[in-house]
Nucleic acid binder design. Structure first.
Lengths: 350, 350
DNA sequence: CTGTTAGCGCGTTCAC
DNA sequence: GTGAACGCGCTAACAG
């Protein structure tokens, strides 16, 4: 069903049909209507490849994500897909499985597909070959979750969020606060969150941070359980994401530790599933779908204006706190006397 | 970076460059190498839009899914994406949010994008306008999760799986077995699984099936909790998918019911997250990523052969059983004496 | 083995 | 307000 068939049927030239859709003002109302009617009748819709080839810009946005097995990215992609659909764009997602080499390859592949722009989550914005290529080619792109002064980013301030969380836990009476993180080399998010943990601990004079780095793609419940079996285990564990927090909940269960009575567990991400757990997961929440929508909006607006989004347009969204049921005061006998009165220190803003 | 630039640089014609990539055998080894070297140097990669326009077939597979918020589809899409990547295809996913009207629109939109073929999960294969359109146009497609004799499908036999599950539960001593399902109008999978439940109950003479239909997109924990608060509550609950099973676990927790001691909860899907829960979810597992891979393989093989997959190529995969920790014998005082000896009835094959 | 050339379907000048 | 014609980058048929 090509433009030519419609033109013939309507008794006009292909140019008129094209204009009837792309520049309606330049066509007489009566012919425009006739063309539209016949097009609808014939089920005509413009061939995207030809249009892209001609205009040199497609209505497709490339998306580069680590994996869909972490619901946080699935939720984000869902938001991206929704926004893209409303804006008349299609998306082309590629998963890197957290491998840096795959990022560059994904970018190259998407560029070959003439995508109009990209949304991506990279491992390390500072030295990403893929991003360098995009900047060199002046291709519009926006980073999600990442934070870096040289790139347009949409995300939350993970460092501050976790630092505030440490204060919150401390005000509940916790002093033995540990952090469970995915491998730090795999993502700048994890590193930022750990920084916030360390900063928060230092600020409160809470002694040496206790950090356990665990595998993330595979489950590491046993390793976590071993950590929790230790005699001087922490009373609260901050997990660098919800998936690890869920595994931590299971590890606690395997150790016979009641959550939150004997152990507080806090996550990061705010995946929808966390709200259906028993106990409901207490977590620092990011608006994942909304972040995806914002990325796409930033991109399509830039596209419409013929510009590329710059670092100055970065958006730091407020993080939220899902109260949940996995976080409470530590067991009374573990609370040092001087800590018990410190609940006025609770200084967490959104 | 067009083919012409490479040709000029290499001192050959564009046709030779094209052949060097698409028909390497027809080019002298020495020129082929030179062309490849220069192409790599210039960072050349063929323009997909032009290629698609010329060949009338793209290397893009359209994917139509209900939503990514259910991990089962995220896992499947991950498998699809992986297989597509290996086979040199890109994917174009569209989400319908479980709305039938959106299915047809998604198909139309994908066809306009010249996709080579489609993988889709529809609400009801029997009367899907989108599928009809694909058949009429002879566009290759494969259904995932759906089952229907008139279409090429990849999935498991949900009805038999649940019927066997009823027998398994009965052999453990359960007689009060209920089923929790998402709205039946939303998916043929749910209907098949409920059929299996009813068949299983009937076969064992277990009295009237007790079916609770709950909202699915929104969480329905309260409704489930109310159901479980009933004085003559079941001792085992079969959930039509893992997401509902997770909510059921929480509902049981809210009711103060110990799982599996007082209540057995079984899911369907085998999402990865279920294995990290406490208690680990007992569930009928589908190989979600593998299903996605198979769909894509079936599609690309047909594409390579210039054919369209037909109903005769449908694959019914064996379902698995994840033992988990959420399913056990019912409380002793609730087991009728004659049921205690029936464990030889356990007749569940893979 | 390699070069020349004709479209694939469309958007966009430039005439009328 | 409308039509004719060019070319986006590539592949495939045909010559050589």
């Amino acid at each position: 069903m090509s433009i030519e068939a419609v033109a013939k049927q309507a008794g006009v030239s292909v140019a008129t049909v094209s204009r009837a859709f792309n520049l309606p003002d330049q066509v007489a109302a009566t012919t425009r209507e006739r063309v539209h009617a016949i097009a609808r009748e014939l089920g005509y819709s413009a061939n995207n490849s030809a249009r892209t080839l001609r205009t040199q810009r497609s209505r497709v946005i490339g998306v580069v994500l680590p994996s869909l097995l972490n619901p946080v990215f699935a939720e984000c992609l869902d938001g991206i897909a929704q926004a893209a659909c409303s804006a008349g764009y299609a998306i082309l997602p590629l998963m890197t499985q957290y491998e840096v080499a795959a990022e560059q390859q994904a970018v190259a592949s998407l560029l070959a597909s003439n995508v109009a722009g990209l949304v991506l989550v990279v491992s390390e914005p500072a030295n990403s070959a893929g991003l360098a290529q995009l900047q060199a080619r002046q291709t519009p792109y926006v980073l999600a979750y990442n934070q870096h002064p040289d790139h347009p980013c949409v995300g939350v301030d993970g460092e501050t969020a976790v630092a505030q969380l440490v204060a919150r836990l401390h005000s509940l009476g916790h002093t033995e606060i540990a952090m469970l993180s995915g491998h730090l080399s795999a993502s700048d998010r994890a590193r930022q969150r750990v920084s916030g943990y360390q900063r928060g601990m230092r600020a409160l004079g809470l002694g040496a941070p206790r950090l356990l780095e665990v595998p993330f793609v595979e489950t590491a419940v046993d390793e976590i359980a071993q950590f929790l079996s230790n005699a001087n285990r922490p009373t609260a564990v901050i997990c660098s994401n919800d998936l690890i927090a869920i595994r931590c909940l299971r590890a606690a269960w395997l150790c016979g530790l009641a959550v939150p009575e004997q152990l507080s567990v806090v996550g990061f991400d705010g995946i929808a599933l966390g709200q259906d757990l028993a106990p409901m997961l207490s977590t620092l929440a990011q608006p994942n779908a909304e972040m995806g929508r914002l990325c796409l909006q930033m991109l399509t607006e830039a596209l419409a204006a013929g510009q590329v989004p710059g670092p100055s347009q970065s958006i730091t969204l407020p993080h939220g706190w899902h109260e949940g049921e996995s976080c409470a005061a530590p067991p009374a006998h573990l609370v040092p006397a001087r800590s018990r009165v410190s609940s006025h220190q609770l200084g967490v803003s959104s």
